[in-house]
Design a protein around this nucleic acid. Structure first.
Length: 468
DNA sequence: TTAGGGTTAG
């Protein structure tokens, strides 16, 4: 088996090969008596046995697709190019658990298991597959403690929800860098404890690491804490977010696209649309997620038409909408009563953008039809879904049934919802209210009684007005 | 000297 020059060239073009790597590849080809002129050069063949470990490593590192990395790895073994400590980390990083464990034994067999880069990659492999004890065992294998290994261990605790252990570990580390602190700030957020994430950021800022100038929060830290502020959804968090915004403006030459996107998300979610727009307008680089944040902010605050205009603009900028963009745009359609546009978009999203509708998209389109009074069509969508609807989809439908008095359909779906998961007080209340509105008092009070009998607590709803 | 740890949108 052999590589042709054309294949090699294709591979190197697809991968991000550095100039000096390219020179190495080129010189290899020349020393083998073959010359590459241009892309459609006659396919000169290059025997694999001349491709040394270094070249395979460069290709494995550069390739974006895991399967191709594995292909190159097996190719390398078949051609007696011995893998070394540089070969495994990029492979392990993209490996699912079964492949990763095989590679683990390969490193053991080849005597590479004391290499810190390989150990870090193994630690992360087990951590992201929720095998914390395995990760910890790998951590103990490190011949020398280093800060990167500690940070990987911090991340392992965070991913697996052991935040107390993470904090304790961080406090006992001989030294911490900005990665250490960011990992924990983000860890709390990962586990849904946004308040703790913000408080921990505060702790970081008053810790001697920062006070003495040993550590300085960077874009990742700020993006992470801003996202926690947005998710916490209260006035204190908005104020905290504004402080972070101020900090970044004073301390950095430019904010960076991730911080800017988090700011748009924060301001947009809190209803400060003018602030969100101000950030958006002056941005130099905008990513798909930036547009997503702006579109959903507009969609959720009564500016549905502008959200749709923004979507058009995004496409004009040559960006490819993501699954989340479609959720935001469909939300805008549902709330703005753009039924035709929404349905068209939903039906063509696969064809136009290659995006498969998920539960969220179904939820949006059921909401879209339901709000507009097309209850039967909404039911039809649910019946034809390729997977089982969850409470969000059924809930949107039930809401529509209530608004439009479709009591029979509502009862049917309501029952499904009650069977689907642990009974939710809200579902009973909604069903009961629907019956009450139709003056079916017996059924309404039965449902109310079922709530008490099942020992379900309905969390009282509340509204709040912030004074600015 | 081609390598390891933390980043935003629903």
């Amino acid at each position: 088996m052999s590589y042709s020059g054309g294949f090699l060239l294709q591979l190197t073009q697809r991968c991000k090969i550095l100039p000096n790597q390219m020179k190495q590849i080129h010189s290899l080809i020349i020393t083998n008596g073959h010359l590459l002129h241009h892309s459609n050069a006659p396919s000169s063949s290059l025997s694999d046995q001349w491709m040394p470990t270094l070249l395979y490593n460069a290709l494995i590192h550069a390739d974006l697709i895991h399967e191709r990395k594995v292909f190159l790895f097996t190719h390398m073994l078949a051609n007696q190019a011995p893998p070394n400590s540089h070969t495994f980390p990029p492979l392990l990083k993209s490996s699912p658990l079964p492949v990763g464990t095989t590679l683990h034994s390969q490193t053991l067999k080849r005597g590479l298991l004391s290499d810190p880069f390989i150990l870090t990659a193994l630690l992360s492999l087990y951590a992201r597959n929720h095998l914390l004890p395995h990760a910890h065992r790998v951590f103990e294998e490190f011949p020398r403690l280093c800060i990167v290994a500690c940070n990987a261990m911090l991340s392992a605790f965070s991913i697996n929800g052991h935040m107390e252990a993470a904090v304790e570990f961080l406090e006992r580390m001989p030294q911490r860098d900005v990665f250490s602190w960011t990992t924990v700030v983000n860890g709390f957020a990962l586990n849904g404890n946004f308040g703790a994430s913000i408080r921990f950021f505060g702790k970081m800022m008053s810790h001697e690491d920062v006070v003495l100038g040993l550590v300085k929060p960077n874009e990742a830290t700020c993006a992470s804490v801003l996202s926690s502020c947005a998710n916490l959804d209260n006035k204190v968090a908005l104020e905290c977010g504004k402080q972070v915004h101020g900090y970044v403006v004073v301390n950095e030459a430019n904010l960076g696209v991730n911080v800017e996107t988090s700011l748009i998300h924060l301001y947009g979610k809190m209803g400060c649309l003018s602030n969100a727009e101000k950030v958006f307008r002056v941005m130099v680089v905008r990513k798909v997620c930036t547009w997503n944040a702006m579109i959903s902010s507009l969609a959720c605050h009564g500016r549905e038409k502008e959200a749709l205009d923004m979507f058009e603009k995004m496409k004009l900028h040559g960006l490819k909408p993501s699954s989340i963009t479609l959720v935001a745009v469909l939300t805008a359609c549902a709330r703005g009563n753009f039924v035709r546009e929404g349905l068209e978009l939903f039906r063509s999203m696969w064809q136009d953008f290659g995006i498969e509708p998920t539960m969220k998209h179904y939820g949006c389109v059921v909401d879209l039809l339901g709000r507009a009074g097309h209850v039967e069509e909404a039911a039809e969508i649910i019946r034809n879904m390729p997977f089982k609807p969850d409470v969000s989809v059924l809930g949107a439908f039930l809401g529509a049934c209530r608004i439009h008095g479709a009591i029979e359909l509502g009862e049917e779906i309501g029952k499904k919802m009650l069977n689907l998961q642990r009974p939710l007080g809200g579902t009973y209340v909604l069903l009961s209210s629907m019956n009450a509105e139709k003056e079916r008092w017996d059924r309404a009070s039965d449902l109310r009684r079922e709530i008490t009998e099942a020992g379900i607590q309905k969390i009282p709803a509340y509204s709040m007005v912030y004074l600015t």
